[in-house]
Design a protein around this nucleic acid. Sequence first.
DNA 1: GTTTAGCACTCGAGAAGGTTGAGTGCTAAA
DNA 2: TTTAGCACTCAACCTTCTCGAGTGCTAAAC
Lengths: 347, 347
Amino acid sequence: MGLDNRKKEVLQAIVDDYVATCEPVGSKALIDRHDFMVSSATLRNDMAELERMGYLEQPHTSAGRIPSDKGYREYVNSLMKVDHLSDEEGREIKEKLGKSFDEIASLLKAASAALADQTGYISLAVTPKLTSSYLTQLKMLMIEPGKVLVVVVLSAGVVKNRMVRIPDFLTQEQVAQISNAVEQGLSGMPLSEISLITVATAAKDNQKVELPDALLNQVLYEAYTAIKQADNLDVYMDGKHRMLSLPEFSDTKRAQGLFDTLSHDGLVAGYVDEVAQQDGKKEYMIRICQEITLEGLDGCSFITTTYNVGGKVAGNIGVIGPKRMEYSKVISQINFVRMMIDEQLKQ
Amino acid sequence: MGLDNRKKEVLQAIVDDYVATCEPVGSKALIDRHDFMVSSATLRNDMAELERMGYLEQPHTSAGRIPSDKGYREYVNSLMKVDHLSDEEGREIKEKLGKSFDEIASLLKAASAALADQTGYISLAVTPKLTSSYLTQLKMLMIEPGKVLVVVVLSAGVVKNRMVRIPDFLTQEQVAQISNAVEQGLSGMPLSEISLITVATAAKDNQKVELPDALLNQVLYEAYTAIKQADNLDVYMDGKHRMLSLPEFSDTKRAQGLFDTLSHDGLVAGYVDEVAQQDGKKEYMIRICQEITLEGLDGCSFITTTYNVGGKVAGNIGVIGPKRMEYSKVISQINFVRMMIDEQLKQ
DNA sequence: GTTTAGCACTCGAGAAGGTTGAGTGCTAAA
DNA sequence: TTTAGCACTCAACCTTCTCGAGTGCTAAAC
């Protein structure tokens, strides 16, 4: 049932060659480029066998073989060698991420850019899932009468802000008092426990000014929305246009389909998260072509990994490339970037 | 020298047809689709003449004619009729922009999305140039020891924030005092007059705590940077991937060149601004193909217009499309969106 | 049993040639 | 100045042909 050693080598060689050239690989080419100690006829037999077993495919009778999804899967599971990044490459990435960032958002943006640059594929970075984090600060700054900037600071160092409208006649002092009351009542509370009710309770317990309930509730609702919104997953994506130079996307229809899907940040973030749930324990997650349950990504593969904030599992970064991707290289690149992120978010 | 009436009609008809079909227009097709009261032979003579004058081009001898850059220029300058948007279209745009926005950033983002949707081309919206506006608020919120969020509020209703690092041992009170001092000293001051020196003066005139100069200056420098950074032009772009469905970009090389250029926000913003400087007085600015002095936009045209904040000239919105663009329609769409923006930013 | 040489076969890619038809310019008459 | 008529051009398309990389199968060799 399993593959004997030579078959494994053959499959590996075919994947390597096909990844490099995007051309079906024939038995002769295989002999030329690798030093198998057997003849092409023998390889032909092996290849026919591999095809029968589902690891290879033939575009047409008189062409070479290309790996099937199953072939790629076998390759990433047991054949490829993930080795360390060359010093040179490590240095390049470090250069792009070298300076320290004061905000997760900028760090992720830079990481995404670096990853796209380095891999040549599409990179993505998703902000941490914040359900396990708690509120540390809430400030409401009156920008002008009726307009308030709500700044929400969460434990993981995430800062978000949102402009909201409130009744015109509320004074700066009143707003500040509400803001202080809510902050006092909620700071330290896990995001998951914050609801409209807890917000209201916090305000009323700590409030020193008297305001009609309806009015107060309106302001509190805005504060609540701002807090909840801080929990949204943001996605940073980069390198999309590089895909156009790949032969598999020389057909603009396909490229368009891909871009269409990718323009829905929510879909992508959701899918990344879903994958992370499924493969939670693994160092990195891989989805090959048909394994991707997200429409429009035909012919693509997906590699993601999880970075940590303050030691706890948090967000994801990853790469979307063609099925014919340099898996081992990309994995080591992603790992390296993840390590750099972890380093910066250590405490 | 000038064009007689029929020649004008012929040119107009050719542009219209070519825009619609992206196929070279022949004399017969012209007769079929428009009711010229002359024969195709006559049109042939006119077309030959128009070609001699530089308004038309012929891809090859036995093909129809397509408009040259000069032809498009003549078309937009004096032939096309810019008419009002259909009620239907106006309604669609209004729907997308209908709700009021509390922040310029979100408004522009929505405007850009609506414009891209509506035109089917690439839209862009550039934040206002803020040199003529002044600082109204500056708040420094201590997020954790050593990390401060600087919130800058400008007169045009623009709010920006930036996380900065300061020495660890500064207390919340000290930061608040510096922040208050700077705000007090600078609020109402035009951005153009704010410099490291004015920031320092403001702080020292109003400061109540004593801090070593070197330390204070470090914090002030960060505040200054945050203020200056609020002046950066941001660009919101949308609809890029739609270009892939146009026949002129079925060649992925070209699409890639375009996307490459557009990924440099700074370049685009700078160019938009440059165009606005040149054509300042006009209701809308048009650059056709070769007229665009920005590399990588071969075959594209550019239509922009200027929106106002509080009655003063401010930022720009626009559309990038193929040279073969529905100029008159796009112009009316841009105008409509501009009006909607002006409306929201009236005061 | 495994490997190999040999051979007939397959089939896409690309070149060569032919046809079609939309479009032209020119001329001569209206 | 306009028009009909006609010869001419040339990309696009189709068909046909050749080429060669690659295959599977068989029978001999190891």
